[in-house]
Design a binder for these strands. Structure first.
Lengths: 165, 165
DNA sequence: TTGGATAGTCAACAAGGCTGACATAAAGTC
DNA sequence: GACTTTATGTCAGCCTTGTTGACTATCCAA
């Protein structure tokens, strides 16, 4: 191989421990900013980040079962149930008994739930949009590539389960 | 406008709400994987993620003050102090009174602290390295660009304060 | 000498993870 | 039909890690 793209050459400087550390720190700081906007909104409603995550994925896959949501969120059912219970009590989420399998609970957002989800999502998308716009389409493609490689096969499967563009 | 590279044309499809949502989910899943490896290690030692973060930044900037670390981590001093106290008691971190300003406590890792930090860092860098390698240098550049744009000016300042490559 | 900055401590509380134990209903199996 | 498995929910209790508020001590600088 000529020069660029050759393994072991200068092109591997991006795999330096120092470069990796900067990447780690970038993830740390960016994730903090990433959650800051919805967190502010959630506080007004008396909810936490866990509620946001539940609302997000119920919105993405209306009618998903509790077990599926459990797998997507990666928490215990007790932990999810606490969050889900308040959302149902407050009328943001509706839990319908499954038609084929009556053990299942299929989760849907109510109109009110959709309103909050939209507000949270818009807050988060706002930051994401300006970051995307500032970095440009090619950078965004790279961003997605690295994140997808980082999440590993199991999480990538869940990631792809979500409704695509 | 023509077609490629023109603002407002098809090249802005990466700013779609659906694209932004996928980016949000990629951050969510990738961050989970990102913390999973060190978390496993930490559990063996009876520490949490907060301890990891403290060790990381003390290692990066040996001799930093508590106030600086507070700003970098974005938590209250009570919260940090609890973590810092256990690390000092366990002999992983040393707190030296400042020479010029004796109010300051300058934080350093002990040899034992460096050992744990290295183990945690290596676990985390391992995943980062394979993601970088899989995605390639151009993708990595885009990844960093988007994250830096996402963190906003305040966090970007802290980010740049950290020792560069 | 007084005011502000830096550091630490104590107490109390909340969110949101976790485990373990147990209950119920539905579905599947033998 | 009896038994097992699956899906869900619930109770109790624990841990980490964040929060606020109040208070102390030290030191620097005006």
């Amino acid at each position: 191989m000529a020069d660029s793209g050759s393994p072991g050459g200068e092109t591997l400087l991006f795999l330096t421990d120092e470069q990796l550390r900067k990447g780690i720190e970038a993830m740390f700081f960016a994730y903090r900013a990433f959650t800051a906007d919805p967190d502010r909104l959630l506080e007004e409603y008396g909810y936490g980040r866990a509620h946001h995550r539940a609302l997000h994925f119920i919105n993405r896959q209306p009618g998903l079962t509790v077990t599926t949501l459990l797998a997507v969120l990666g928490v215990t059912k007790q932990s999810l149930n606490r969050v889900l219970r308040t959302l149902i009590e407050d009328g943001l989420v509706e839990s319908r008994v499954g038609t084929r399998d009556k053990r299942e609970r299929r989760l849907h957002l109510t109109a009110e739930g959709e309103t909050l989800e939209r507000a949270l999502s818009e807050a988060q998308r706002g930051r994401m949009r300006s970051a995307y716009r500032a970095a440009g389409p090619q950078a965004v493609a790279g961003f997605r590539q690295v994140l997808e490689a980082m999440m590993g096969p199991d999480l990538h499967k869940l990631y792809q389960m979500m409704k695509d563009d």
